[in-house]
Amino acid sequence: MNHYDELPEDILDLLAQKKYEQLSRDEKDLVKNWLSPEAYDEYAAMLLSFREVENSFDTPAPSQALPEHKPTFLRKLVNYKIPAYQAVAAVFITLLLVNLSTSNKENNKHISQPFFSTNNGDTVPVNTKNAIEVGEKSMGTPLSEDNYPEELVFNL
């Protein structure tokens, strides 16, 4: 078995970071078990040059660019920019509609209040609840032969 299998990873990291003289006492003790100071500095200098070589490379542009980001519907909605005049118009129209609908409701209330006139000229409101119930009942009466009013039966 190759004894470098046991080489501490810290030494491999230090080689790319510091010269021998920059190492702390503990780091020097660790390195000395495996490498001489001269060998350490040679490796460190070589790695420094390797970094320089790499930094000199220009990364070529790939032939296919990344696609443009497609925002979700919700994000589109949130990010949608509304011109000021449109916003003002929208608020105005909304207020107008709200105002119209509330005034209509009030008008309907007065008009739709059912009443009838008595002989002495008084007006009496109709109990709409009862009227609806009566109406519903009468609408539901079947005109079968058994129930047909006798007054309307003519014997020919």
């Binding site: 470098y4 299998d5 080489l7 491999l12 080689l15 060998a39 070589m46």
Partner: peptide
């Protein structure tokens, strides 16, 4: 362990080739 061993061998080979 094999990675460390290969890595150190690579360093040695490079050192021999450069110097």
């Amino acid at each position: 362990g094999t990675v460390k061993s290969r890595l150190f061998n690579a360093l040695k080979q490079l050192k021999n080739k450069v110097n």
